Amino acid sequence: MSLRNFKTSNPVFNGYFWDDGKSSARTMSVAGIFIKSLGGILVIATITAYLWKLNEAGTPMRWFTLGGMLGAAVISVLISIRQNWAHILVPLYVVAKGFFLGGFSSYAHRNFPELPYQAIGVTIVTFFVMLILYQIRIIVVTKKLRSVVITATVSIMVVYIISWILSFFGIKTYIWGTSWFAIAFNILAAIVASFALLLDFDYIERYKNRAPKYKEWIATWGLLATLIWLYVEVLRLMQKLAIRF
């Protein structure tokens, strides 16, 4: 059977890859998103590996982590406001996230050397599980599901921001530490991050071959942001479980 005749509703596995240029080069393509996302992941991995070496040599990671986090947050706001600048801002976002993840992961790598690799494995498996669930329509992205996921995501982020601000005043909130409540919050956040992947898949499917070419950068930004969030939640959860047990 020819691959050209294979039909599926999922943007990652659809016939776009076999279209022989039927779609306009000026529109958002799945191949373009894939290449940009893969490039972003490689840049993040390179920066992370470099920071791990610096950490092993005794270089403090605090400012790398904090600077990367704040930089990524500011750039994300700019991307939301100026989407047509995404081709410049998203690469900067990737670099900022590389510094954040490099600093963040270095702590786990130093104390629990295998955990970052395990967290990467769990993130990859989760990505493909959610992709399959979306592909065979076991989970359908409806307006209600989209609303629930977005509301949960914003709520979790607000909790994190408030907790981070309170930490400057010496106030430690319930989401930190290794209590069962903190672990449950991590599990909830990881589940929401997993479902957020469905929204990324849905965005790609709805706008592929129709949206302007620069939207590839927006889709890449959303997909990378969700994957990084999922990885961070999984790694934090693994750290808490390793400390507790």
Score class of each variant (00 low, 15 high):
185 F>K: 06
72 A>I: 01
28 M>P: 07
45 A>V: 13
178 T>H: 13
5 N>Y: 09
167 S>Y: 09
165 I>V: 15
153 T>M: 11
130 M>V: 01
66 L>Y: 15
179 S>R: 13
153 T>I: 05
121 G>H: 09
47 I>D: 01
69 M>L: 15
218 I>H: 02
136 I>V: 13
121 G>I: 05
19 D>H: 10
227 L>S: 09
192 V>M: 06
240 K>S: 12
89 L>R: 01
41 I>H: 03
89 L>P: 05
101 L>N: 03
1 M>Q: 12
68 G>L: 08
178 T>A: 11
110 R>K: 13
153 T>K: 07
61 M>P: 03
86 A>V: 11
164 W>E: 13
226 T>D: 07
4 R>V: 04
43 V>R: 04
186 N>E: 14
47 I>V: 12
121 G>L: 10
21 G>Y: 13
144 K>I: 14
232 V>Y: 12
230 L>M: 14
161 I>G: 04
245 F>T: 01
25 A>I: 04
207 Y>A: 00
164 W>K: 04
202 D>T: 05
112 F>Y: 15
86 A>Y: 13
101 L>F: 12
63 W>D: 06
55 N>Y: 12
39 G>D: 02
19 D>R: 09
98 G>P: 14
138 I>A: 09
5 N>W: 09
228 I>R: 09
122 V>T: 05
213 K>L: 13
81 I>W: 02
74 V>D: 00
22 K>A: 15
189 A>C: 15
121 G>K: 03
183 I>L: 14
103 G>R: 01
